[in-house]
């Protein structure tokens, strides 16, 4: 090849834009779709993460406050009256559900003690399940993005490099200035995939452990409260 041609091609390539937006705009539509999808995933992952962080800290604070109130020696009737007026979550919801069941059994004409214990436990189990479901919601999105993000990005890269090589073969010019933009653009897809996947994986692990901790706390409270109610039932019977 003529040295002058090489120099010219290098000059042309140097003048072409290699900024992030240019990389995105130069890409083929499949790679573009992959990149956009991964960006949306990243946005969604961070939205969920922010949401969950707020939720868990609130839940934890609410549990602490409720436990303090519960063990402060306050009458359970009063506590129930103050809590049942508005919708509650987590431990308070557990308490309200159990108390409602208890009250129903006592306020009716026929006192039905047989099976009351079992009913209360059932109600509390259901409430715990509902609460955990609320805490765990959307965590699967994080897991999916964390595991599939790199693969999606890799797919974009492979596809981009494939088309880049095809166009290199078509242009019959192998100078680095011709090869580089296509490959850089393709690698950009993997970069976005990793950017989306790494926080997703970290947040997923952190949040699952948090959910487990809170679920255990709820179970513990449920058992304790069931024991108290059971003692009450036995005393009244």
């Amino acid at each position: 090849m003529n040295p002058a041609d090489i120099a010219q091609s290098v000059l042309l390539a140097a003048s072409s834009d290699v900024s992030l937006f240019a990389l995105f705009l130069q890409a083929g539509w499949i790679v573009k779709a992959v990149m956009l999808g991964l960006v949306v995933c990243s946005v969604w992952v961070w939205a969920i993460a922010v949401d969950k962080i707020i939720l868990y800290s609130r839940t934890k604070k609410a549990m602490d406050r409720f436990e303090q109130a519960f063990w402060s020696g306050q009458s359970l009737e009063e506590l129930y009256r103050s809590l049942s007026s508005r919708p509650t979550h987590s431990m308070a919801a557990l308490f309200v559900a159990a108390m409602r069941e208890w009250k129903r059994s006592f306020e009716g004409q026929t006192r039905s003690f047989a099976g009351l214990q079992m009913r209360i436990e059932k109600v509390m189990d259901v409430t715990i399940a509902r609460e955990i479901e609320r805490l765990e919601r959307r965590l699967l999105v994080l897991a999916t993005v964390g595991s599939a993000g790199p693969f999606v990005g890799l797919f974009g890269t492979v596809w981009g490099i494939m088309t880049a090589f095809q166009s290199i073969a078509a242009s019959k010019n192998t100078s680095l200035a011709v090869v580089a933009p296509g490959i850089a653009e393709a690698l950009f897809a993997t970069a976005i995939g990793l950017i989306a996947a790494i926080p997703a994986t970290i947040f997923y692990n952190k949040f699952t452990s948090e959910v487990n901790k809170q679920a255990q706390r709820l179970e513990g409270f449920a058992d304790e409260f069931a024991a108290i109610l059971s003692r009450q039932i036995d005393e009244r019977a």
Partner: peptide, 13 residues
């Protein structure tokens, strides 16, 4: 959830 989405979008931008 809205707060989360807003914060995330702002962060990405």
């Amino acid at each position: 959830m809205k707060a989360g989405v807003a914060i995330s979008l702002a962060g990405h931008a």
